[in-house]
Amino acid sequence: TEYKLVVVGAGGVGKSALTIQLIQNHFVDEYDPTIEDSYRKQVVIDGETCLLDILDTAGQEEYSAMRDQYMRTGEGFLCVFAINNTKSFEDIHQYREQIKRVKDSDDVPMVLVGNKCDLAARTVESRQAQDLARSYGIPYIETSAKTRQGVEDAFYTLVREIRQH
């Protein structure tokens, strides 16, 4: 089974770092803004072998026109913010609204991801993020692309959301 996953969120929150940590098991430290990259990885989730087709997208506003296209083809979405960047957390709402509009559905598989949880300088409390996820009816997972904490959990949870859909 193949799953088309799309990673969305503001610029600099760590979308590529999360994806590369999942696929290649290493942490990319330097920031190089993405336009669009796709990665494929075969994994076993709950005993089922599946192929993850992951689209890593641009957070930069100037590429926002490309969003409709990949939102149409994606089956599930990782909505990523950084726990030390309140603005990126506030941006999640717009991504969710755009996904709902493009998919013409209120019920699209999504996982809210709070990345950079290895950093002490948190400005978005776990509780705020949990409340937001609960209001959307989606899971919330904290990750660190640096330490790998929660990385597999985030992507695998999204696959489970798609399966249950």
Rank of each mutant, 00 (worst) to 15 (best):
L22N: 15
I45C: 08
P139C: 14
G59D: 08
D56V: 02
L112H: 04
G14S: 00
S64W: 09
V111M: 09
G114A: 11
G47A: 04
D107S: 08
C117K: 11
I92G: 08
I35Y: 14
R96G: 03
L158I: 12
I92F: 09
G12L: 15
G47F: 01
Y140N: 09
S64H: 12
K87S: 06
T143V: 13
A120S: 07
F155W: 10
D56L: 03
D37Y: 02
R134T: 07
A145T: 15
T57N: 09
I92S: 01
H93W: 07
H93Y: 11
N115H: 15
D104F: 03
A145K: 00
D107I: 06
K116V: 15
R127G: 08
Y95W: 05
G11Y: 14
E48P: 06
I83W: 08
F77M: 03
A121M: 04
R148A: 10
M66P: 14
T143H: 06
R101N: 03
T147E: 15
A129V: 09
I99M: 03
E161N: 10
G11R: 15
T123C: 10
G47E: 06
L119C: 13
G11H: 15
Y39R: 00
V43L: 08
Q69C: 11
I138A: 09
A58M: 14
L119W: 14
L158Y: 04
T147C: 14
T123W: 12
K146Y: 15
I99R: 03
Q24N: 01
I45M: 09
L112P: 06
S144K: 15
L158Q: 01
V108A: 05
P139L: 08
L78Y: 08
K146D: 15
V6S: 07
A65R: 08
R163V: 12
F77L: 02
A82N: 14
N84A: 10
V43W: 07
D32A: 12
H93F: 03
K87Q: 08
P33K: 12
Q42D: 02
M66N: 14
I92W: 02
A65S: 05
V113R: 09
G47L: 03
D153A: 11
R96D: 00
F77Q: 08
K87L: 05
Y3D: 08
D37G: 01
R127D: 09
L51P: 07
G150F: 14
Q21K: 13
Q21S: 05
R101I: 05
L18M: 08
I141F: 08
E48Q: 07
E48L: 02
S16V: 00
V43A: 06
T86G: 04
L119H: 14
T147H: 09
I99F: 09
G11M: 15
T86Q: 08
F81M: 09
E30V: 03
A133H: 03
V111Q: 06
E30R: 07
H26Q: 08
A17F: 02
T157Y: 12
Y136H: 05
E90R: 05
I20L: 01
H26N: 03
K103H: 08
G9S: 01
H26K: 00
S16Y: 00
E142V: 11
A65I: 11
A10S: 07
I92T: 04
I54Q: 00
L158S: 04
K87G: 02
L5Q: 01
N85D: 10
K103W: 10
A17P: 00
M66A: 14
D91E: 04
D68S: 09
E30Q: 00
T57V: 11
R67E: 15
E61W: 13
V8W: 08
S126W: 11
C50M: 04
I35P: 02
A129N: 13
L119I: 13
I23E: 06
V44P: 06
I138T: 04
Q164R: 11
Q130D: 09
R40T: 04
Q98H: 08
S16L: 00
H165V: 11
D91M: 12
G74F: 06
A65K: 05
E36I: 00
D91Q: 07
V102D: 03
V111E: 04
D153V: 11
T123D: 15
Q98N: 00
V28R: 02
D106E: 07
D53W: 07
H93K: 11
Y63W: 15
G9A: 05
K87P: 09
F89R: 02
V111R: 07
D56R: 03
E30G: 03
H165Q: 11
V111P: 08
Y70R: 05
E125S: 12
D153M: 07
D32W: 09
Q21R: 01
R148P: 12
T86S: 07
N84E: 14
E36Y: 03
K87D: 07
D107W: 10
R96I: 13
D56C: 01
D107E: 04
Y70T: 02
D68F: 03
G14D: 05
I45Y: 10
Q128T: 08
V28A: 03
V151A: 14
L22V: 05
I20S: 01
Y136N: 04
F27H: 09
T34M: 00
A154M: 15
R122P: 12
Y156N: 10
N85K: 05
V13T: 14
C50I: 04
